[in-house]
């Protein structure tokens, strides 16, 4: 029973990891750079959502949509002001710029909202569901459902929409995409907007589960083993990697932490990643690209 409980917690948290990792992978695929400010994108979401909810006194859904608009705008601004300037710069410069950006955004959150933990007013029903002895709080259930719906929407978007096709084409071969008449600038802007939005959604869901505090940006670091495990350039890998890391983390937290007095929860994912990278250097689903001439 305890095992199942931990497993379900892991699946729910893992689905959120998968969502946040998706934004990470999208940016990597489109520009070849790691977005080290991803954790801070996660951080902005719940704070903005909270502010809209409490200051304007509107229902959660309205605040949620407002937050999405804000996040899209934030992603757009970052792309315009920072990333576009570095268009022809080496990848390492872009990565360093995102590192600077993460400090900047984290600082902004501290200045504006301080560092006390805040809690969301109850959004989802409070009474836990008891399914065959396993207790599931509605927040967990709803988070999982929302993430699943979003993943389905995204996979349809990438598979069938014109912009989705262009995003995949740019990720594949930027020059060739340019020669198709695709606007690489537009695609990059879209990528950053979407990445910022999924990060914010992940943050809001996590904020509903654990409360909102600046330490949430640590998810930026947790998502790193997720994407490396799944393969940096694989959307599918990000999602499955998210589940795996979420489950491993919770099982380690449940079974191993009491033995050593805590702390293993955050370490075990990295140990797993190390082991897997020894066997599969490109991650579980990452490709070294189809090579044939």
């Amino acid at each position: 029973m305890f095992f199942l409980q931990m497993l379900i917690n892991g699946i729910v948290v893992g689905s959120i990891y998968g969502l946040v990792a998706l934004g990470f992978v999208l940016i990597y695929r489109a520009s070849g750079a790691l977005n080290l400010a991803n954790g801070e994108f996660v951080l902005f979401g719940p704070y903005v959502c909270l502010v809209i909810m409490t200051a304007l006194n509107v229902p959660f859904l309205v605040a949620f949509i407002g937050t999405l608009l804000f996040s899209a705008f934030l992603g757009l601004v970052v792309e315009r002001l920072v990333i576009r300037q570095l268009q022809n710069a080496p990848t390492i410069s872009v990565i360093m710029a995102t590192l600077g950006l993460s400090s900047l955004l984290a600082g902004a959150v501290h200045i504006i909202w301080g560092h006390t933990t805040r809690t969301f007013p109850p959004v989802f029903p409070q009474t836990p569901l008891n399914i065959g002895g396993i207790i599931i709080t509605p927040v967990y259930l709803w988070s999982f459902i929302i993430v699943m719906i979003l993943l389905v929407i995204f996979s349809i978007f990438f598979k069938y929409s014109k912009i989705g096709l262009a995003m995949r084409a740019v990720a594949d071969d930027r020059q060739a995409a340019l020669s198709m008449g695709m606007s690489v600038k537009f695609v990059l802007a879209m990528t950053w907007m979407i990445a910022s939005m999924v990060a914010a959604i992940g943050g809001i869901l996590l904020g509903n589960i654990n409360g909102v505090s600046p330490t949430m940006s640590a998810i930026g670091l947790t998502v790193l083993p997720v994407v490396i495990l799944g393969g940096l350039d694989s959307v599918m890998g990000a999602i499955i990697g998210g589940f795996l890391i979420g489950i491993i983390q919770n099982l380690a937290g449940g079974y191993l932490d009491p033995l050593v007095g805590g702390g293993l929860k955050d370490v075990v994912p990295f140990i797993v990643v190390l082991l897997i990278l020894m066997l599969k250097p490109h991650g579980l689903f990452g490709s070294r690209g189809i090579e044939r001439v």
């Binding site: 084409a169 990720a171 594949d172 020669s179 198709m180």
Partner: peptide, 21 residues
Amino acid sequence: MEGRRIFKDLTVEENLYAGAY
């Protein structure tokens, strides 16, 4: 372009759609 430069991870059909972008 020289060297064909087709989109390797897209299917043949998707490549043709990309041309019609």
